[in-house]
Nucleic acid binder design. Sequence first.
DNA 1: AGCAATACTTGTCATTTGGCAAGTGCATCG
DNA 2: CGATGCACTTGCCAAATGACAAGTATTGCT
Lengths: 194, 194
Amino acid sequence: MQENTPLIRFLLASGMITAPVAAEIALAFRPMEFAKEAFLLREGQLSDCYLFLEQGWMRGYALTPKGVEVTTAIYRPQQVVFEVSSFFQRRPSQENIQALTPCKASGITFAELNHLFHSLPEFREFGRSRLVMGFAALKARMLSMVTETAEARYASLLQHHPEIFQHVPLKQIASYLGVTDSSLSRIRRELMHH
Amino acid sequence: MQENTPLIRFLLASGMITAPVAAEIALAFRPMEFAKEAFLLREGQLSDCYLFLEQGWMRGYALTPKGVEVTTAIYRPQQVVFEVSSFFQRRPSQENIQALTPCKASGITFAELNHLFHSLPEFREFGRSRLVMGFAALKARMLSMVTETAEARYASLLQHHPEIFQHVPLKQIASYLGVTDSSLSRIRRELMHH
DNA sequence: AGCAATACTTGTCATTTGGCAAGTGCATCG
DNA sequence: CGATGCACTTGCCAAATGACAAGTATTGCT
């Protein structure tokens, strides 16, 4: 058993998990790989994998009634990936989660996660903390939808998360920002010309 | 001690809490009242009250840099009210929560909630469940922002939550739907004339 | 009752954005 | 190496929405 895996480093970095507990948690995770374009989750399925993404990028998206893809989440490496409502409420997901690049990861099932939560209070608190962080991030994104222009949202994403633009095509970023790809293209042109 | 308070009925209705545990939980809550317009939480303060709203309506809102109010949440009676990120992350809230009508409620502090979570696993699960439900609802709202027209969002709110329109002024509903009050007024006119 | 504040509507006009179609450049693949 | 596909851009026009201002209605207060 390794003592310094990406997952263990991630757990320790939170400041909420001690080293022996981190090692025990890591033991429960199984390594997983995803080819580019492979799915972690498909619409209609149950999200039953709590995934720690070690390498690569993923995105979540939903389909509108007319079949248009809307990007709902962008997952960078060193992040937890799963569909909260399907996973915890045990019902079919309305979203897809797909690898944007080849990915390496570690995952456990819902049952295994709950077992860890039960036996390791530290990890339970960690899980709640992640949930709250995700909630807060989503609220901030929602607020920016209402209060900022699409141009401001684009500029902000570019400033705070420039790496995204290396791994996610603009058309997918566009729907994440709440505009069409044409509009995003126009917005980019405006910002180029100062 | 009462055996059939609104809070106890609410806990039992979730199907996750047994009667004796519900009674113990309810013991920890203190009754609270809010006059119309009174604040449960003000921007800059710490959200330190986990509130069960028994009677009345509240709303959450944030101020844009230009001082415009944006409604971020609408709370009906028989619902839990608190600002997730401030409450759990122990940092100042960027939002306000204000009574729209006179309210009766029951509340506990962060410390008291954690104590209950620690001693009553049922209630801990209940808390997580509420968090997940709120998360899922916010995701759905975000998706509707991107995929539906303002008119469709209004029609949907009117259909699914008509009571809101009895207690919340249209200008506040407008920003909740992501439009100005003028636009909402025009949308309403269109829908009147079929 | 009378006054003031607030909620809501409406008109006008500018701006943003979407829908569609075409065009360009790049990459993948046989 | 040529062909097909995809990502991105761009032009054109229509539709949706915002900003501002004015008008009406309603509410609340004294």
